[in-house]
């Protein structure tokens, strides 16, 4: 099976991942991704009938907390402290165009 990751694929994925790639990068990622995806192709030769995908490697399930307020000892100021632009306690971002 041909598993070449074309430059078009790379452009499409970069768009999904919000990355801006130069022409050279697009061509390089096309090669690198192809190399890696070809390497992992051997998974498709493995018989896995009757097996479920792993969802919890250490077998835990039903881990939850009770519905109580938790004081994490954080102030809004400490959280907003890392925000590049704050306006009236809001996080300011470039305008969202619908």
């Amino acid at each position: 099976m041909d598993k070449k990751i074309t430059e078009e694929d790379v452009i499409k994925i970069a768009k999904l991942a919000k990355l801006e790639l130069t022409k050279q990068e697009i061509s390089r990622y096309s090669m690198e991704l192809t190399e890696i995806i070809e390497y992992v192709q051997k998974l498709n030769t493995v018989k896995t009938t009757g097996l479920d995908p792993t969802v919890s490697v250490n077998g835990l399930c039903n881990i939850s907390r009770s519905d109580q307020q938790i004081d994490y000892h954080q102030t809004p100021a400490s959280l907003l402290g890392n925000v590049p632009r704050v306006k009236d306690n809001f996080i300011q971002v470039k305008r969202v165009i619908e």
Partner: peptide, 29 residues
């Protein structure tokens, strides 16, 4: 619920101060 789905911050409708009922989880730190 009294608190959020994945954090212990209050689940309230009428908080007037922006970014008040949040913590590192709701903030995605």
């Amino acid at each position: 619920t009294k608190t959020k789905l994945f954090s212990g911050a209050l689940n309230v409708d009428d908080q007037e101060i922006p970014n008040k009922d949040i913590n590192h989880i709701d903030f995605g730190l």
